[in-house]
Structure formats: C-alpha cells, structure tokens
Simulated scan of single mutants.
Amino acid sequence: MADPESEGDQGAVRHADTVDYTPVARSVPLARRRTARLVAEWGHPGLAGDAALVVSELLTNALLHGSLRDRLIRVHLHTTDTVLHVEVSDPRGERPPSPRAADGTDQFGRGLLLVSMLADRWGWAPRTVGKTVYADWDACATGAPSEPSSLVDEKVRREWRWRGPVPQESPLVPAPGLTLPALRQAVATVAPSRLPEFFQDLQRAFVRAGDEDSVVPIRMFHRQWGVIVEIERHPETARRLHAAEEAVNSPDPEVRERAVQEAGDIVRAAHRRIGMPEEERAGVHTETHIQAT
C-alpha cells in the first residue's frame, strides 16, 4: 500500500499544515474549522467544506477507535498543483479502518462511507507506530493569493489584545423556533457544512431518549442547536467565536485567557437570546463551550 505521506506523482507541495491534537472531543471542531479556513486560503474555497467534513469524520474515527491515553492524533493537510491531500494519523495500527453499512439504530458507522462519497480517493497505510487514514481530491491550483498559516496565526494572536465588544449586526435569517424543522432549515442556510453534525447529534439524542425513556435529550438537542444557530446567523459573532476556539490553543497565556473569556461571553449571550433557563445551561453540551487549558 502506498505511503500517504509520499509526494509521489502529486508534484511539489505548495502549501502544508500539520497539527497534533489531544484525543478529546473538543479537537474535532477545532480541526474542522482550521481545515476549512486553510483550504479556502490556499485557493480551493469550493473544496473547503468537503475537506473540513472529511477531517471531522476521520478525526472522530481516530478518537473512537484509534486513540490512546497521552498520545496525540496528527492532522496533516497539503496541496500540490493537482491534489488536495488530508490525513489523520493515530497510534493504533492494529485497528484498520473498515467501512460498514449502519442501520437506523446505529449511533456511529457512517463516517467512512461519507468520506468515500466526498473525496475522490481515500485509503489508509500502516506506520511504524499506528496508522494514517487519508483522502485526496483532484484540484487544480487557482493562483488565488494566500497567507502562510504562521502569519495568519500571528495575526490572530495580535488581534486578541485589542478586541472590544461584538458589534451589533443584522442576522442572516430570523431566529428560528426550537423545533426540528425550523432548526434544520436554519442550519442549512447559515451553516450548511454542519448539517451532518446536526443529524449525528439528532441521532444521538434519539438514542439517549430511548435509553432513558425521557424527552429531555430531545429538548437538550433543540436547545444546543438553538444556541449554535443563534451564533451562526450573526456572521461577525460566529467569526469571533471560531477565532476564539483556535486562539485557546495559543502558547501565550494572555491570548488563551482572552479567548476563553470572549468565547464564554458569546455563548452566554446566545443562551440569553434564545431564552434558555439558567438551570438548563449547565446541562447543555455544545462545542462552543471552551475550557481553559
């Protein structure tokens, strides 16, 4: 099997990025958003959503089936003149990826099938320790201007020192009701790349509701995605939250502290706007809750 890290006939690498993530759920949205941003900056905005979703699925699989305590999971991206390549490496080589058909009651099992539909090619290769799962897209370089990720990251670190309150802005769509049809339509409009995540969370909520014989998980799902939509329908607010989620990994303690504070302010404001009762807030888990590291 070919080594996924080999450039081979792909040509010279034009852009590349490698990040090691801790094996926790919070790493998935961070990697997804970083991938979408970098792929767009590298001149392939049309592939940014698909690449981000594939990285999200591969990293989720690595967390579920390939993670070990105290071992990092690596996400690598690069582009050549003809190919966009993404890969996720984990420390468990004895558990190769295997697509399978998931039935209606399965909470997981569709990730690799989704990867195979989104990417032009995918595969995996063993490493000295662990394995790498990769996906490729045929992509011609557009020549669009881009900034090296190191410069972008430095710009983010500088901006955090002077940011003020989030400005008032007009929402992209009216606030939806906390119902499944309304939330689904809103997500499809303001954050279409997150629809697979929306349906995965919905499926988990139904599984939990059945296990617990309670409607509380369904209500919590509605609240969770009500908060997400409330943020995403305000583009500047969403941009600042996503920047905070990346800045929280900064080596600068001042940047981390400000990032956690801003993310918390944004999420709490969204809770207030959708009218979430105080006693329910602690029970709602969303990826926008950032913990200080």
Rank of each mutant, 00 (worst) to 15 (best):
A62L: 03
Q261H: 14
T128D: 10
I73Y: 00
A102L: 05
N249W: 05
A12Q: 05
P277H: 07
L84S: 02
R223H: 05
A125F: 04
R240S: 02
D103I: 11
R37W: 11
T237C: 08
H65K: 08
E232A: 10
T22M: 11
T288M: 13
I218W: 04
R32W: 04
Q200C: 06
E236Q: 14
K155R: 15
E147Q: 15
S149Y: 15
K155Q: 11
T132R: 00
T35N: 10
P99G: 02
V19K: 04
E230W: 07
R272Q: 15
E197S: 09
D265M: 09
D103L: 12
G93V: 06
R69W: 10
L63D: 01
P235W: 05
P96H: 01
S27D: 06
R184D: 07
G11I: 09
A31N: 06
V19R: 04
G283H: 09
E278S: 15
R204E: 05
G46V: 06
A102E: 01
E278N: 14
I274R: 10
D9A: 14
E236N: 13
D201V: 04
I73N: 00
F221E: 00
R161K: 11
Q203T: 15
S27P: 15
E262K: 09
V19H: 05
S193V: 13
L118C: 12
L84M: 06
L202C: 09
T293W: 09
D213S: 13
W162Q: 13
P253H: 05
V24H: 10
D265F: 07
A186Y: 03
A259S: 14
A269W: 02
W162A: 13
H289L: 13
A51Y: 01
A51Q: 00
A141C: 08
V284Y: 02
A36F: 06
Q10M: 13
G111M: 06
R273K: 14
D81H: 12
H85S: 08
V13W: 05
T293I: 12
G226W: 01
A139E: 00
G210E: 07
A270Q: 01
A244S: 14
E246M: 07
I218K: 07
P174A: 03
T132K: 00
F206G: 03
G8K: 04
L63S: 04
E87C: 06
I290M: 05
W162C: 13
P196L: 02
L195S: 14
P277A: 11
L151G: 14
T128E: 06
A243V: 11
Q200Y: 11
A31Y: 07
R239E: 02
L172E: 09
P165C: 08
P126S: 11
E279P: 10
R92D: 06
D103G: 15
M1K: 04
S6P: 07
S214I: 05
P192W: 10
R194E: 06
T132W: 00
Q291M: 14
W124S: 00
R219I: 03
P167L: 08
E236C: 10
E5Y: 07
T35W: 06
R37P: 08
V173I: 15
L202M: 10
Q200K: 12
P145E: 05
V129Y: 09
P29I: 00
Q10F: 13
D153N: 09
S89P: 00
W124Q: 01
P165K: 08
A191F: 11
T288R: 07
P99M: 01
T286N: 08
V75L: 01
T60H: 11
